[in-house]
Design a protein around this nucleic acid. Structure first.
Length: 477
RNA sequence: CGGGGUGUGGCGCAGCCUGGUAGCGCGCCUGCUUUGGGAGCAGGAAGCCGGCGGUUCGAAUCCGCCCAUCCCGACCA
């Protein structure tokens, strides 16, 4: 008997849809503590996939992993003026330990620049100690007012790279290199098209000289910042007095970068590809790429399960193939469950298929059914997995293009922002005050100044000030 | 921190107005029958009704306080 879907359709309630997808796919659950989440095995598998891909790229670009402590002395947080102003209000602070009040409160890290630079002071003396290229995989805590699973939780997992360089040019090159690493993760592995750009003064990281970002568009046309790479200039070196002796024997301040991607990326992944039937995963991030569902056939027939297992083995995909041979669950039930979990390909194998030497291959992204001869199955599956990966990227990119507008006047700006929403490419005068006013009246923020924006003279549609390039406005998560 | 909800077996809910034996669906367990899009029958387990206090012979239900959580805003990866 058909049941109604347990997933609220996107056009009915997008936020509820997002929560339903997460619940049905068993990605995460609300924890007993406000704003915290439990990442369940299906969700953690996605994080592990992201970690593998990123960590490889970090190592390829010369970085090493280390681990710094969770607790930061209060005094460290206060060293860099902008940094403390930006982060202190959202920090959790430990005031008691071992049954008594602590002399100095300890901050639970909201990010690790301060503790890391306090150590870099000890480790960096000479130009021969540079560059220092360290990454850490860690959890951080930020006491946000309002939380959403994966997109914004009180505690979240991330990686944070912290590098030290001898020259400004080198630090800038590092910052840009890591932004490109993030673009590759988003686009090549997660099939999430992103725009690379940098943040305005108002939106940049507290303590940074310049913040680069990758911005993605979700299916409700809102923007999501998916990763950031900061050129910190000499701010933290100055705050922690980190200098090195150059080739000529002179003491110089060190140049710094930091960059991070968090479990928010999983939220981006969910919101970019999933549909009203549940999670949709790009094959390259799916731990299970193929599920084989044997269909038992009428009573007295041969047991089809060994055949299904053999078919799975023939695919040569190892643990990425799962045979769902649960005996008391109907095929329809299995189909729905695996669709909700986002498995890219389902292969059905029933008596009729065995008889005719074929299998039924069903794509999660399009629902298309293909009848494939067993001899060609391995090749076909590999090809379909590639197709799905490419299709999901193309689909997401098409949505973004469809909802990106070049805007020159205030009236159109306001209208497009409401309906249908999206990325508004508009001129901007460059004034922080004007930017703040726009946010106040429209709820849209400048997501970034795109790296590939071409020079173009224009006027700010809000204040009429002069502008030399377009920036991207959008409502954001 | 403001506005609006919601707390009842694992999940989703009804019951509350009009106090009187705690119910339904899904899920779970056992058995048999089933398997090409969410299977059927039979039997079964599982709940100090968010917490504390009050009213009452009697509270899931009425009153007060508290807590948690979700959604909408201001803050943010």
């Amino acid at each position: 008997m058909a049941q109604q879907s347990k997933i609220t359709p996107r056009d009915k309630d997008y936020n509820q849809w997002y929560l339903d997808v997460i619940q049905q796919a068993e990605l995460a659950d609300h924890a007993p503590v406000k704003g915290c989440m439990v990442i369940r095995p299906n969700g953690y598998a996605l994080w592990e996939g992201i970690q593998r891909v990123l960590d490889d790229m970090f190592k390829e670009t010369g970085h090493v992993n280390a681990y710094f402590p969770l607790l930061i002395p209060e005094e460290f947080m206060k060293r860099e003026a902008e940094h403390v102003e930006g982060f202190a209000p959202e920090c959790a602070v430990v005031t008691h330990g071992g049954g008594s009040k602590l002399e100095e409160p300890l901050y639970i890290r909201p990010t690790s620049e301060t503790i890391i630079w306090s150590m870099y002071k000890k480790w960096i003396n000479s130009h021969r100690d540079l560059p220092l290229l360290i990454n850490q995989w860690a959890n951080v805590v930020r006491w946000e007012m309002r939380t959403r699973l994966f997109l914004r939780t009180t505690e979240f997992l991330w990686q944070e790279g912290h590098t030290a360089h001898a020259t400004e040019e080198e630090a800038e090159a590092e910052t840009r290199q890591m932004l490109e690493v993030y673009r590759r993760l988003a686009e090549d592995t997660l099939a999430i098209p992103v725009i690379q750009g940098y943040k305005t003064e108002r939106e940049k990281f507290a303590g940074a000289k310049r913040t680069y970002t990758i911005e993605a568009m979700m299916q409700d046309h809102k923007a999501l910042q998916a990763g950031t790479s900061h050129n910190l200039g000499q701010n933290f070196a100055r705050a922690f007095d980190v200098t090195f002796q150059d080739e000529e024997g002179k003491q110089q301040l060190v140049w710094a970068t930091s960059w991070g991607v968090s479990t928010r990326m999983i939220g981006a992944l969910i919101m970019t590809h999933s549909d009203d039937r549940g999670l949709v995963l790009p094959p390259r991030i799916a731990a299970r790429k193929v599920v084989v569902v044997p269909i038992m056939g009428k009573k007295g027939g041969a047991d089809i399960r060994p055949e299904a297992q053999q078919l799975a083995d023939e695919l040569g995909l190892g643990r990425a193939v799962h045979v769902d041979d649960r005996p008391n669950v109907s095929p329809g039930q299995k189909f729905h469950q695996w669709e909700q979990r986002g498995v890219p390909i389902r292969i059905e194998l029933g008596p009729r298929d065995v008889e005719s030497g074929q299998a039924v291959v069903v794509r999660r992204d399009t629902g298309e059914k293909l009848f494939v001869a067993r001899a060609e199955l391995k090749e076909k599956v590999a090809q379909v997995l590639d197709d799905i990966q490419a299709n999901l990227f193309a689909r997401a990119k098409a949505l973004r293009e469809e909802h990106s507008f070049s805007i020159d006047d205030k009236e159109t700006f306001l209208k497009k922002l409401e309906e249908p929403g999206g990325f508004l490419h508009a001129h901007w005068c460059g004034q922080t005050e004007c930017e703040a006013n726009i946010q106040k009246t429209t709820k849209a923020t400048i997501r970034c100044i795109p790296l590939d924006a071409k020079e173009e003279k224009g006027v700010c549609p809000f204040c009429g000030g002069e502008s030399k390039q377009r920036v991207i406005f959008a409502k954001a998560y």
